[in-house]
Simulated assay, not measured.
Amino acid sequence: MEYDIGANGSGTVCHLSADLTFNDHEAFRAMLDDAVAQASGEIVLDLSKLEFIDSAGMGMLLVAQERSQSEGWSLAIDKPQGQVQKMLELAKLGQVVTIRS
C-alpha cells in the first residue's frame, strides 16, 4: 500500500494506491494515526487508485470504522474502482461505512 494524506474542505483525505493486503496492516494503522492527528472533521479514504484489496484489507476498513465510532470522528470511503468496488459490494460494507462513488 502506498498513501499520501492531504486536507480538503471538510477534513482529511488519505489517498491509497496499489494493494491493501495483510502485509499492509502496520502501514494502514500508521496512516490512520497520522490522519487522526491531522483531522479537523471527517477522514476520507480515497480508494480511486487502489487496485486490489483482500479480506485482511477489508478488515482494516472495518477497524477504521470501529475506531471512528469509538473516538467520535467520521469516516467515508471515496471512489472505489474495479476489484475493490466489487469486494466492498460483496461484503456489503456500505451498510456500515459511508461509500461515495
Rank of each mutant, 00 (worst) to 15 (best):
S70L: 08
F52W: 14
W73M: 06
K86N: 13
G94D: 12
L62D: 02
A91S: 13
A39Y: 02
S68Y: 02
D34C: 14
S17C: 07
M58L: 14
A35S: 10
E66I: 14
V96E: 11
G9S: 15
L20S: 07
S101T: 09
M58A: 04
V63F: 03
M1R: 02
V36D: 04
I53W: 01
E42P: 06
G82R: 07
Y3M: 02
A18G: 04
V96H: 04
F22N: 10
S10G: 11
L47R: 00
G57M: 08
S48R: 02
L61P: 05
T21I: 15
L75I: 01
R29M: 07
H15G: 07
L16E: 01
D78V: 02
N23K: 14
L93T: 12
A91Y: 06
G94K: 10
K86M: 09
E26Q: 13
L61F: 06
R67D: 07
H15R: 13
S40R: 13
A18D: 11
A64L: 05
G41W: 04
Q65P: 00
D4G: 15
G82I: 07
M87R: 04
C14M: 12
S101K: 14
G6S: 13
I53Y: 01
E89K: 10
M60T: 11
V44G: 00
